[in-house]
């Protein structure tokens, strides 16, 4: 599992690749810390290469969303696979995120 964060104009883009399972979530939670303190920037969670997301991964996405909302930032989840889309829908979290 790899997480890369790049800044592009008014956006912070986190690119996830691999499987965001319980084991990988510990490191990923560390990797996304710069997103939690972002302000006045939109946060893009680019999931083009994300193969799988577990509950632990969902918790990370939810904590990013919570902090972003507190700082007035928007979170956009981009390019999720159908399997991950299904996870968001089945758990009822899909309406919390802007999904592109």
């Amino acid at each position: 599992m790899k997480t890369e964060i790049v800044e592009s104009g008014n956006q912070l883009i986190a690119r996830f690749s691999g499987r965001l399972d319980t084991l990988a979530a510990v490191q990923t939670a560390e990797d996304v810390k710069p997103l939690l303190s972002a302000s006045n920037k939109d946060i893009i969670l680019d999931c083009t290469e994300l193969e799988y997301i577990s509950s632990s991964g969902l918790r990370i996405f939810l904590s990013i969303r919570k902090e972003a909302a507190a700082h007035g930032c928007k979170v956009i989840v981009r390019n999720i696979s159908n399997d991950i889309r299904q996870v968001f829908m089945m758990t009822g979290f899909i309406s919390l995120f802007v999904i592109e």
């Binding site: 577990s54 509950s55 996870v87 089945m90 758990t91």
Partner: peptide, 21 residues
């Protein structure tokens, strides 16, 4: 429907909208 969807996923976090959805 929820049992069918979630039953073999191990997903242990849900939103409170899952029932009404």
């Amino acid at each position: 429907l929820a049992r069918h969807q979630l039953g073999n996923t191990g997903l242990d976090i849900l939103s409170s909208s899952v029932g009404v959805q």
